[in-house]
Amino acid sequence: MNTQIQFQRFLPLDTLTTQTPVLFIDSHAPLADLHACVAERLSALHKLLTIFACCPLCDSNPADLTTVTNIARLLLQDANDVFDVVQQRCLSA
Rank of each mutant, 00 (worst) to 15 (best):
T15C: 07
L34M: 08
L76D: 07
L74E: 04
P56F: 05
D33C: 07
L57I: 00
L57A: 11
R41H: 15
C37T: 12
A93H: 11
P21F: 06
C58Q: 11
C37R: 15
V68G: 05
N61P: 01
D81E: 06
F7W: 02
R89N: 04
P62H: 11
D84R: 15
T50I: 04
V85M: 03
A39Q: 15
A93C: 02
H35F: 06
L48R: 04
L13V: 00
L13W: 03
S92I: 00
T18F: 08
D59K: 14
N2T: 08
D59M: 09
L13H: 15
A93I: 01
L31F: 02
S27M: 07
V85G: 07
L48G: 11
L34V: 00
P21D: 03
D78A: 07
A39V: 04
S60D: 00
F83N: 15
T3Y: 09
L42I: 04
A79E: 02
T20W: 04
T17H: 13
A93N: 09
C55W: 07
I71A: 15
H28E: 14
Q4W: 01
L13Q: 08
H28L: 14
T20E: 13
N80W: 09
L13S: 02
F24R: 05
Q6H: 09
V38P: 12
L91S: 11
N61L: 06
C90D: 06
I25V: 13
D81Q: 10
D81T: 10
F83M: 12
E40I: 01
T15F: 03
A79S: 10
T67G: 04
F10V: 00
L57N: 05
P62A: 11
L23S: 06
N80A: 08
L75Q: 05
D59N: 15
T17Q: 13
F7Q: 05
P30I: 01
T15K: 11
R9F: 01
R9P: 06
L57Q: 11
P62C: 06
A93L: 07
F24Y: 14
F7N: 00
Q4F: 08
A44G: 10
Q4N: 10
L76G: 06
L34Y: 10
H28Y: 15
S43N: 09
L74P: 01
T3I: 02
N70Q: 10
Q88V: 02
T50V: 08
Q88E: 09
C58Y: 06
A36E: 13
K47N: 11
V86Y: 10
S60P: 01
T50D: 10
L75K: 04
L74M: 11
P62I: 07
A32V: 07
I71T: 04
P62L: 07
K47I: 08
K47Q: 14
V38S: 13
Q19N: 14
H46K: 15
V86C: 15
D81V: 08
T20C: 03
R41E: 09
L23Y: 09
A32P: 04
L16T: 02
N70K: 09
L23V: 00
A39D: 14
R89P: 03
D14C: 02
D64A: 12
L13R: 12
Q88G: 02
P12M: 13
T67S: 12
I25F: 04
